[in-house]
């Protein structure tokens, strides 16, 4: 009896060391940079809305600022940096023609024509990706955010065919070797599943604004589209804004102020 107990304690001690070493090896120095995990108190401060949306002051979004937002977003969400056309994108910049391909103006304002536009998931009101997903791995929350369950996704990529905005990326390979700065606060993905921008649902839950909004310093306005007193509604009342491919019928929640 005593013997078994001693054996057990020994085993437990060795296991603890093993687990500790294993964790250190896997996480590297990431936990030190990431800070403590959010607690119950943080979740009590969570931000709530009827329908989250965004307005973008495109004139203020310089290529440098877009890159800053992209880095902030991709670092937060462990988005891998994969070269080539099998890459993963949550937030990126594109030309006017690529962003608004249905606006075939011959004579555009030169400044707008050469502007770079930030692109991200449009968090549509009637998302096609949710409609076509055969497993509900992608779903819409009551506050409008279109999210992914990475553990339910079978990787059929129907959502990628359904999305008119090219907002979705598929993990053609294990993304982990391509993650430069690992953030232990957000899950990494495995190969064979689809992912996309989630409007930083994990940050809203602890009362923080999305990463890109924080990094953009006022050029991105985030808030409740259903609340007419919200910042985003105020901005949209005062400035002319368009949405990408409104004729696709998905009703994007991201507005571009030209």
């Amino acid at each position: 009896m005593k013997n078994t107990r001693r054996e057990f304690l020994k085993l437990a001690a060795v296991s603890a060391i093993g687990v500790g070493a294993g964790r250190l090896g896997f996480l590297g120095d990431a936990p030190a940079h990431a800070g403590p995990l959010p607690g119950v108190a943080n979740f009590e401060e969570g931000l709530k809305a009827k329908h989250w949306g965004m307005a973008i002051f495109t004139a203020k979004m310089t290529p440098e600022l877009i890159e800053k937002c992209r880095t902030a977003c991709h670092t937060e969400h462990n988005v891998p940096d994969i070269p080539g056309n099998k890459n993963i994108k949550w937030f990126w910049g594109a030309s006017f023609e690529e962003s608004f391909p249905t606006e075939h103006g011959h004579y555009l304002s030169e400044e707008v024509e050469h502007r770079e536009f930030p692109l991200l998931c449009n968090q549509c009101e009637t998302p096609m990706c949710v409609k076509v997903c055969p497993t509900q791995a992608t779903f819409q929350r009551p506050d409008g955010i279109v999210m992914m369950d990475f553990h339910r996704c079978i990787g059929c990529r129907y959502c990628m065919a359904g999305c008119p905005f090219g907002a979705r990326s598929f993990n053609f390979q294990d993304p982990r070797p391509f993650i430069k700065h690992f953030n232990p606060h957000f899950p990494t993905r495995m190969r064979g599943v689809v992912e996309k921008c989630n409007f930083c649902a994990e940050r809203l839950a602890i009362g923080k604004m999305p990463m890109c909004v924080e990094a953009a310093g006022g050029a991105l306005v985030f808030g409740d589209l259903a609340d007419e007193n919200s910042d985003v509604r105020k901005v949209l009342r005062e400035h002319f804004a368009i949405r990408r491919k409104p004729d696709a019928g998905t009703s994007p929640s991201v507005y571009y102020i030209l």
Binding site: P134, R152, C156, G192, V193
Partner: peptide, 22 residues
């Protein structure tokens, strides 16, 4: 064609009539 074939049965477990794939 699917990226996670071992999860194939999710199509039955989470039967989704609004998906044409179902």
């Amino acid at each position: 064609d699917i990226g996670q074939p071992q999860r194939m049965m999710n199509v039955l477990l989470n039967a989704t009539p609004h998906s044409m794939l179902f």
